[in-house]
Amino acid sequence: GIPATNLSRVAGLEKQLAIELKVKQGAENMIQTYSNGSTKDRKLLLTAQQMLQDSKTKIDIIRMQLRRALQ
């Protein structure tokens, strides 16, 4: 079985993952909103794209940590 310490770690990672998935969803929504907007929305679009990139990276890292914890 999986050690108890790993189980609480997994629960924490799953919570983090859920949050990051919401951030990713929000960033994707912002990108959709701003991509057909005016030029003043360009900065917001770039910010949203950066957020999305960061979020995807975090999600990958969390998933990797989850896999390790579940081994």
Rank of each mutant, 00 (worst) to 15 (best):
I2N: 10
I2R: 08
I2Y: 11
P3L: 07
P3W: 02
A4T: 10
A4S: 06
T5H: 14
T5K: 12
N6A: 08
N6F: 01
N6D: 10
L7G: 09
L7R: 13
S8I: 09
S8L: 09
R9V: 12
R9G: 05
V10Y: 05
G12V: 14
G12F: 15
G12T: 14
L13D: 00
E14G: 04
E14C: 15
K15G: 03
Q16N: 03
Q16L: 11
L17C: 08
L17F: 01
L17R: 00
A18H: 05
A18I: 07
I19Y: 09
I19C: 11
I19H: 13
I19A: 11
E20N: 03
E20L: 13
L21M: 11
L21H: 02
L21S: 02
K22V: 07
V23T: 07
V23D: 01
V23K: 13
V23G: 02
K24V: 05
K24T: 03
K24N: 02
K24C: 12
Q25E: 12
Q25R: 08
Q25I: 07
Q25D: 06
G26L: 15
G26F: 15
G26S: 13
E28T: 03
E28L: 12
E28S: 02
N29S: 10
M30D: 10
M30T: 04
M30P: 00
I31T: 01
I31K: 01
T33A: 15
T33G: 06
T33V: 11
Y34M: 10
G37C: 13
G37N: 09
S38R: 05
S38Y: 08
S38C: 12
S38H: 09
T39Q: 12
T39F: 06
T39A: 10
T39K: 09
K40V: 12
K40S: 10
D41G: 02
D41L: 02
R42P: 14
K43G: 09
K43R: 08
K43Q: 10
L44A: 06
L44V: 03
L44W: 04
L45P: 00
L45W: 04
L45F: 06
Q49F: 11
Q49R: 13
Q49K: 07
Q50I: 08
Q50W: 04
Q50F: 03
M51V: 07
M51K: 04
M51T: 06
M51I: 12
L52G: 01
L52Q: 01
L52T: 01
Q53L: 07
Q53H: 09
D54F: 04
S55F: 01
S55Y: 01
S55C: 13
S55D: 00
K56L: 15
K56W: 04
K56R: 07
K56Q: 12
T57H: 13
T57E: 14
T57Q: 12
K58T: 03
I59S: 01
D60C: 15
I61P: 00
I61M: 12
I62M: 02
I62N: 00
I62R: 00
R63Y: 12
R63L: 12
R63A: 04
R63P: 00
M64W: 10
M64N: 10
Q65C: 09
Q65H: 06
Q65S: 03
L66I: 14
R67W: 07
R67H: 09
R67A: 13
R68Y: 10
R68E: 14
A69F: 05
Q71V: 08
Q71G: 08
Q71H: 09
